[in-house]
């Protein structure tokens, strides 16, 4: 039997917008959370989600039904996130003027961003260390870590989603974990 996603995708190909809306409903939050963890910026995360679904929509007939739909959509979204991270300046500073919003620096973007999940809860020291450490991780490690810890994908699933061998995924998870352990060493 075909998966729910595959059936919805077929209906969407035939022009059923409602079916596509259901697909969006299924994956929107997952993609958004992932993009937010990758990019640390609500607006950019929203943009990535929108762009990802547009790509999905335009390439629906290329979706291979033997592949898990989640794998496919994660691949599209992670690629978009990695592209964005690469385009950023290597050091992402609050003092740096954002190229996308001219005249606005990182500080002026924070107050408008009052829906930050962390704004409600005071971050514990550990969490802020983890966020800082994650921000310094290179994109290829970050992607693997986000998929592993946010979506709890297995190593195999991450490999499928990123199109890399499981051994590579394993190495990256190990190194990422080791990196964070070192950062946290004092507080652990």
């Amino acid at each position: 039997m075909k998966s729910l996603e595959a059936r919805l995708a077929r209906m969407a190909i035939k022009g059923d917008q409602q079916a596509f809306a259901e697909l969006v409903g299924l994956y929107q939050d997952k993609l958004y959370h992932m993009a937010y963890r990758m990019l640390n910026n609500r607006q950019e995360a929203e943009d990535v989600v929108q762009e990802a679904f547009l790509r999905v929509y335009n390439n629906l007939e290329r979706y291979d039904e033997n592949m898990k739909f989640s794998t496919w959509i994660y691949r599209i979204a992670t690629n978009l996130c990695i592209d964005r991270l690469r385009k950023r300046k290597p050091s992402y500073s609050l003092d740096a003027e954002s190229s996308e919003f001219e005249g606005l620096d990182g500080y002026s973007m924070i107050p408008s961003d009052n829906r930050t999940p962390e704004s409600e809860t005071l971050l514990s020291e550990t969490q802020s260390i983890i966020h800082q450490a994650m921000a310094t991780l290179p994109p290829k490690y970050k992607t693997v870590m986000v998929l592993r810890y946010l979506h709890e994908l297995s190593l195999q699933e991450i490999g499928d989603a990123l199109g890399m061998p499981v051994t590579t995924v394993k190495t990256r998870v190990h190194r990422g974990r080791e990196f964070l352990r070192k950062k946290l060493e004092r507080t652990l």
């Binding site: 959370h33 937010y36 963890r37 930050t116 999940p117 962390e118 409600e120 809860t121 550990t126 969490q127 983890i130 966020h131 870590m145 986000v146 810890y149 946010l150 709890e152 974990r177 964070l180 352990r181 946290l184 652990l188």
Partner: peptide
């Protein structure tokens, strides 16, 4: 602990 914290931090707030 790193593993547990990582998981909690990722999901936290979302």
């Amino acid at each position: 602990r790193t593993d547990a914290f990582l998981h909690a931090t990722m999901v936290e707030g979302l």
